[in-house]
Design a binder for these strands. Structure first.
Lengths: 342, 342
DNA sequence: CTGAAAGCGCTTACAG
DNA sequence: CTGAAAGCGCTTACAG
């Protein structure tokens, strides 16, 4: 068992007849050490099964090689992909990922952040829970570099002292809406999402922009909220046709909602892509595998994860100034679900 | 900026006119400290914005409050749910999750483990990449408690010195197959998965068990491999009907494969659940939302994650002996996809 | 209840 | 190229 003492630099030094300092230099592959000495030391480390204690090293050097990653909902493939990208990029730079899940609870999010802060991460990447208050976050994060992903925080002062990485929600929704208009639709709904979330507001804005540009307007009964999930979207799909004027197409908040809506349409005897046009947002893997395949906006969450990690490490290592608004463009991917005629 | 020195126990002690030891006792809420003193100390910590340095504390105490979680594929909802469960249970016990993704690469997995080991985690939870060799893992893991999830390792000696948590793959596949037999099917395929993975072997075994019990047997042409993904399953679905005797039903390796197969069937003009019966494995959220809904085996990956965390912490905190085979039963969830007549 | 001293495993100047 | 000493921020005995 690990009852026997852990092997330390001291043990290696003694076995080789050297001082700890020399072994330490070997560990950090300093050019000051004679190659022969290095070899002896490395052989001895292997022999004794030495494993570096980076926490101790970090303590002395007053640095950190961890980054805290706090995710609102890991069971959502969009965020799971994002997390994968973050971990990949951090690992490539010899950083380690401290994971925390908030499960969309602001309280739990604060707990998680507090716990992770005790490990003094070099930086924090936060994909915030809904209704997260910027002031709470700033308080616990202190001076640690912070990058917020995807959603803006409530009550965030303009001169926010953190990085932000988000999608071009407005532009994306505008593309999707314009695409439906081009195909002849005039009665277009915006379906799903929580109207108080920043991403939903931005997407609705893009939808309105496109309508306005075409001389159209949205009826209130076509602005329908739902949880951003398949299940809830499916359950609420009938609401679309509750008003007097029935829409012929819907721009959906995201792919999960769009897939749920398509299912709901089928339950009502409407064939998505034939009787009713639908667009999504995110391009999750399922979008290309649904029936019909889903027209959507490609966001490449794994690449976003890598990008987030890069931004935040750049900030840590070069103390660059914050870039409060990195807005990533999104691209329309045209598939069968939007091919229904008006 | 954080250019100013970090606040330490020393600072708090000096400000309160106490020694570091006393402040340390407050931090660990020792009953030895006078309540009034405690109050003063806590107020001062808040005032100065003190944040505990757990790495330093752990170093001195020779303990760890981190657990390494290494996942083969986080973009698979099954593992994402598992990770969520692990993090939830660890967080509840004041442990922190060190995340690493191997992306199904055994080499990357070793790199990731090596990097995480330098943080001396209290334990390791590993959902191994395919073709992981137990000897490689044992070498890097050393004496740290290890729990392997879901897949057994290659070349694992019987008296493995690690915990294992897995699903009852054999029993589950047996249930699914028996269910199809009960519905009158006699020509049943086993579709998808890599035949060299332990979980696929076990599931195929259960399939054979059920056939044998009913006096049936599998044709070789009905044993079809695929990557365990929707895309590949869809691509290979025609293989099912390439032989002389066409099956009327298929037990699928997992839900992703089953959903891909259903899509492939539709492309061939076969209506799943009406013209052909299909079962899955896992009960991912999509299973209840597909058309038709998917009959499958419920595994509750988030609960498995909590269970894995519990097992491993129990091992850490109470030095319990390893339990090499925790096999979790799975439950058949009957839905429309398996209702096609023979 | 509180203080002075030592130490966790490493690295950092500073001499040589 | 190598060694002796100090210190990162905390906790642990041991006195008082």
């Amino acid at each position: 068992m690990s009852a026997r003492q852990r092997v330390t630099v001291e043990d290696i030094a003694r076995a080789c007849g050297l001082s700890r300092a020399t072994v330490s230099l070997v560990l950090r592959s300093s050019p000051l050490v004679h190659p022969a000495t290095r070899q002896r030391v490395e052989a001895e480390m292997k022999r004794q099964g030495y494993v570096y204690n980076r926490a101790a090293a970090n303590l002395r050097r007053r640095v950190s090689n961890s980054v805290a990653l706090v995710i609102n909902d890991l069971s959502n493939p969009f965020f799971a992909e994002f997390a994968t990208g973050v971990d990949e990029a951090l690992g490539g730079k010899d950083y380690v990922t401290l994971l925390g899940c908030s499960n969309e609870s602001p309280q739990r999010q604060l707990q998680v952040l507090n716990s992770l802060m005790e490990h003094h991460p070099a930086a924090i990447i936060l994909s915030p829970a809904e209704n997260t208050d910027a002031r709470d976050i700033d308080r616990v994060v202190g001076g640690t570099p912070l990058l917020v992903f995807n959603r803006m925080l409530d009550h965030d002062s303009d001169g926010a002292d953190h990085d932000f990485l988000g999608l071009d929600n407005r532009g994306g929704a505008m593309q999707a809406t314009a695409h439906l208009i081009e195909r002849g639709h005039r009665d277009i709904a915006f379906f799903g999402g929580h109207a108080n979330s920043s991403s939903c507001q931005e997407r609705r804005q893009g939808y309105h922009d496109a309508l306005k540009k075409a001389g159209l307007r949205a009826r209130n009964e076509w602005l329908i909220e739902s949880a951003p999930t398949r299940v809830d979207a499916c359950a609420r799909s009938e609401t679309l046709f509750a008003g007097k004027t029935k829409p012929t197409a819907a721009v959906c908040y995201n792919d999960a909602v769009a897939l749920g809506l398509m299912l709901g349409l089928a339950h009502h005897g409407l064939r998505p892509g034939i009787d009713f046009a639908v667009t999504g947002f995110d391009d999750i893997p399922e979008a290309a595998m649904s029936m019909p395949e889903l027209t959507t906006l490609s966001t490449d969450p794994r690449a976003r994860g890598r990008q987030a990690a890069q931004l935040v490490l750049q900030r840590v290592e070069q103390a660059t100034p914050v870039s409060p608004a990195n807005i990533v463009p999104v691209r329309l991917v045209e598939r069968a679900s939007s091919s229904a005629p008006a």
